[in-house]
């Protein structure tokens, strides 16, 4: 059962990701990205990362993609910006991506899966929360500061000159 689910969602993810990079219009890319996020959330669930899966949907698909769509609509971008140009840096970029893939696969091979037993509280909100507010308090506070700064910064940068 898990195998089927995994392959299903994995293929979905990959197709959606391909859609992101290949779509003509940014709207289609954004939609494909949303699809990617949803599929990934499912895979996270398969990995017993329940909290993260939910947060993925809430934050990524719910907030960030909305932001993206708002911006796309604000900029009134329609079709893509002209025919694709095959330049030398772009070819190199393609090759680098392929090379990076190969490198990562090679790097991943030696790992021997431990397939450890997971406790029942694995990935639950209580478990995450407990660790978050005790050992990981400092990064937590830092991230909250970061979000504050990002908010202010976004407003300042995007404000139109009045």
């Amino acid at each position: 059962m898990t195998t089927f689910l995994f392959y299903f969602f994995a293929i979905l993810t990959v197709v959606a990701a391909a859609g992101v990079i290949a779509a003509r219009s940014p709207i289609y890319s954004a939609m494909s990205l949303v699809g990617t996020f949803f599929s990934l959330a499912a895979i996270y669930a398969l990995l017993l990362a329940h909290t993260i899966a939910v947060l993925q949907v809430l934050v990524y698909a719910g907030a960030i993609m909305v932001l993206f769509l708002f911006v796309i609509m604000l900029l009134s971008l329609g079709e893509s910006v002209g025919p694709a140009k095959v330049t030398f840096p772009r070819v190199v970029g393609g090759l680098v991506a392929a090379g990076l893939f190969a490198a990562l696969v090679i790097a991943a091979r030696p790992f021997v899966p431990a397939a450890a037993q997971t406790p029942p509280s694995f990935g639950t909100l209580q478990s995450i929360g407990a660790q978050l507010y005790t050992q990981w308090l400092a990064p937590f506070e830092a991230v909250s500061l970061l979000l504050l700064v990002a908010m202010v910064g976004a407003v300042v940068v995007a404000k139109s000159r009045v």
Binding site: P89, V92, G93, V96, A97, G99, L100, A103, I106, A107
Partner: peptide
């Protein structure tokens, strides 16, 4: 002046360093 080109260069460097470490 094209940021994407600079990013390409950085990616190449990254690939090379990963290759070396690997």
């Amino acid at each position: 002046g094209n940021a994407q080109n600079y990013a390409t260069v950085m990616a190449v460097a990254l690939l090379v360093s990963i290759g070396v470490v690997l």
